[in-house]
């Protein structure tokens, strides 16, 4: 695309520092960052970061993924293995309650006018992933609550046959909505103007989905006594982590190519690399591979791997929220990102 303005032009030169201004927050001066050599306006942000609390929203995204994937995996185990997977199915159905309860509470807490949370139910909009997610969460909450209630009834021996049938009937829509619940959060971030979130919409969604499945499998692994099922949950987690790592590699390329990589250079990016990817994906994969090669599986290592997946999954979401805010606050990143060569086709 040809542009009508002179591209060699500079912005305000030798902009004096201002307390709390971009230059005092150790942001690179205009033109001193490899990704952007054009002008900025006194280094001031060109975008506003989302007013989300990283731990709250990151925590919700993590719980949504964990709950959705738990419901999904429990349903698959129920359908394919039936009674033999009863323990994993029960735990999965109860874990699925995390998003409707704690997750919803976190969402309401993050509103700046929480007493009006019900206004989310005024409309349904396909252009707004937050609206899509609201309705997915509502549907999932209903189905997961019904499933868990029926499960509880059958656990207590109240009308066991009816309760089991009801649990299975409610768990099928819960599984479908659970898939949506664990991935719509990526669309929520990608469908913004925040450069880091918008730079790799597909890879981010694949990572969120895969990481959710890994977290669900890890959560169900904890407490699984059936060796055969535990091994298969490990394999499922390993496959999901491999997909996650592939998505990580793809998104890293996109971040570099679209000039948003500097936003990952800070503490949030380090957390994402060390805890999110290193502890949460690379370490468990290595542990699984090592135990497979050694032919034996010390339970402690399996527990370590499962916990690492869960901690890493939570850290990954939180650090993406944080790094996104950094990318919005840095004009060098946002201006580089919003250049004609980065426009979608």
């Amino acid at each position: 695309m040809s542009v009508p303005y002179p591209v060699a032009s500079r912005g305000p030169e030798d902009a004096p520092a201002r307390p709390g201004s971009a230059s005092e927050r150790n942001m690179p001066a205009p033109g001193h960052d490899g990704s952007w050599d054009g002008p900025t306006y006194y280094g001031r942000p060109a975008l506003k970061p989302a007013p989300f609390e990283a731990e709250v929203v990151g925590g919700y995204i993590f719980l949504a993924g964990l709950s959705g994937a738990s419901a999904l995996i429990a349903t698959v185990a129920d359908v394919t293995m039936g009674e033999r997977a009863a323990g994993a199915v029960r735990r999965g159905r109860y874990t699925a309650l995390l998003a409707p309860t704690i997750g919803s509470a976190l969402l309401v807490y993050d509103l700046h006018t929480p007493e009006r949370f019900f206004n989310m139910f005024r409309v349904a909009k396909a252009t707004s992933p937050m609206s899509i997610g609201t309705w997915i969460l509502v549907g999932f909450s209903g189905c997961a609550a019904l499933t868990a209630a029926a499960q509880y009834a059958s656990d207590r021996g109240a009308a066991p046959r009816t309760a089991r049938a009801a649990a299975r009937a409610a768990s099928l829509p819960a599984a479908v909505l659970g898939a949506g619940l664990s991935t719509y959060t990526a669309a929520l971030l990608a469908a913004t103007s925040t450069p880091l979130w918008a730079a790799a919409p597909r890879a981010l969604a694949v990572r969120f989905g895969a990481s959710a499945v890994a977290c669900g499998a890890a959560a169900l692994w904890l407490g699984e006594r059936d060796g055969g099922l535990a091994r298969r949950l490990e394999t499922l987690a390993a496959a999901a982590l491999a997909v996650d790592l592939a998505g990580d590699a793809v998104s890293a390329i996109a971040y570099r190519r679209k000039g948003v990589a500097p936003a990952m250079a800070g503490p949030a990016g380090t957390l994402e690399k060390v805890v999110g990817t290193g502890l949460g994906a690379a370490l468990p994969l290595a542990l699984y591979a090592a135990s497979r090669l050694a032919g034996r599986r010390p339970p402690a290592l399996g527990t370590l791997a499962a916990l690492a997946i869960l901690v890493g999954g939570a850290a990954f979401r939180t650090s993406i929220i944080r790094a996104g805010a950094t990318s919005a606050e840095r004009p060098d990143v946002s201006f580089r990102f919003m250049q004609p060569d980065n426009l979608p086709d």
């Binding site: 992933p129 990526a186 103007s193 969604a205 201006f335 919003m338 250049q339």
Partner: peptide
């Protein structure tokens, strides 16, 4: 920004 884009176009690909 020189070339902003419409964020809602990223909903479907991502989802």
């Amino acid at each position: 920004p020189s070339a902003p884009s419409r964020p809602s176009r990223r909903v479907a690909p991502s989802l």
